[in-house]
């Protein structure tokens, strides 16, 4: 689907992330984001979505490290890049926002200076220029009285305002790719739609590519073009948002949608997935989902599901499905 010569904004190939050299917390991750596309990375806790995101700009805290595979942003390789090359890519190509905006901002530094910091470092802007540009950015992300607010400290801002400041800082270097890790999870529900709407507006204006990490499928439906579903460190299904939500093909994706509270009327039992999510340290032979899989196949042909990891199958709907029961 990508024409030759059109370099994807993000390309991840066969990435493995491990704790030290022993335990793999994410395995065989393949991911591609085109220019102007929003891809949602979905999964429950322990699925490996946050470590995957951190590995994209080489921010994995030790002892976590990439043990195999590669990451490229706009055609430039991140994996094993030299420190200054890495800094140039981070400063010019990528912005990142996190779940807890107030804990990501420096409490002792005025927010205007923080928003302008990347310009000082990467664009050699003077202090005055950086501050002026920061005020413009704060205005752009919908902060009222931006010139006054630029002189505030993080604790003087509400959660929604702090997240707007984070977005302004992430956009300051005019990135191609924005990585948003649960950007609205810590915010009130009525503020959530406003922040997501802001991301959507910026995406259109700047032709941003967004990697949106979330566990909330209603956000995925409202924001994403494509969805990548992770379970216990591996991708289980990938495809366009409309068909993933309407006709999921991996049993885990289906179960996740069924228990998401999205389309359920009151009364009656909710669908649920039996068992618990395995910790990343537990090794499970075969398909990682097979002990919880409701699919008859997992029981009938236990040999395959319990012994061998399923390869990816491209289905008629254009999904990439890692399941022994998937039909091309």
């Amino acid at each position: 689907m990508i024409s030759p010569g059109d370099t994807p904004c993000l390309k991840v190939e066969n990435l493995d992330i491990s704790i030290g050299d022993a335990v793999a917390v994410a395995r065989g991750i393949n991911l591609e984001i085109r220019r102007g596309e929003t891809v949602a990375l979905v999964g429950e806790s322990g699925s490996g979505k946050t470590v995957t995101a951190l590995s994209l700009i080489d921010l994995l805290p030790p002892p976590l490290k990439v043990t195999r595979g590669s990451v490229s942003i706009c055609g430039q390789k991140i994996t094993r890049a030299a420190p200054d090359a890495l800094n140039r890519i981070r400063g010019n190509r990528v912005g990142m926002i996190f779940q807890q905006p107030s804990s990501m901002l420096d409490p002792s530094c005025r927010v205007g200076r923080q928003v302008g910091e990347a310009l000082r470092l990467h664009r050699r802007a003077s202090r005055g220029e950086a501050f002026e540009r920061a005020v413009e950015l704060l205005r752009e992300v919908g902060i009222p009285e931006a010139d006054r607010r630029a002189r505030s400290f993080a604790h003087q801002l509400s959660g929604g305002m702090a997240q707007r400041v984070m977005i302004a800082a992430a956009l300051s270097s005019d990135p191609d790719l924005l990585i948003a890790d649960e950007p609205t999870t810590a915010l009130d529900v009525t503020v959530q739609a406003q922040i997501l709407g802001l991301l959507e507006k910026e995406k259109k204006q700047r032709t941003l590519s967004i990697l949106l990490i979330t566990h909330d499928l209603s956000i995925v439906s409202a924001m994403a073009d494509r969805v990548v579903v992770m379970y216990a460190g591996g991708i289980v299904e990938e495809g366009p948002v409309a068909t993933i939500m309407r006709a999921p093909q991996h049993p885990y994706t289906k179960a996740l949608i069924d228990c998401s509270l999205m389309r359920t009327a009151g009364g009656g039992d909710l669908e649920s997935i039996p068992g618990t999510i395995p910790p990343p340290t537990r090794s499970i032979p075969g398909c990682r989902f097979h002990p919880r899989c409701p699919h008859a196949l997992a029981r009938r042909q236990e040999s395959a599901c319990a012994r061998e990891e399923p390869a990816a199958t491209r289905t008629a709907a254009g999904h990439l499905v890692h399941c022994w029961a998937a039909e091309p």
Partner: peptide, 25 residues
């Protein structure tokens, strides 16, 4: 109504949900 819309983002859409309530508590 705003809370309801916020919980049904996928059906209502971001714009409509955002219009039902301004600002923060």
């Amino acid at each position: 109504k705003a809370l309801n819309a916020a919980s049904l983002l996928d059906e209502i859409g971001l714009d409509a949900a955002g219009r039902l309530v301004q600002g923060e508590p």
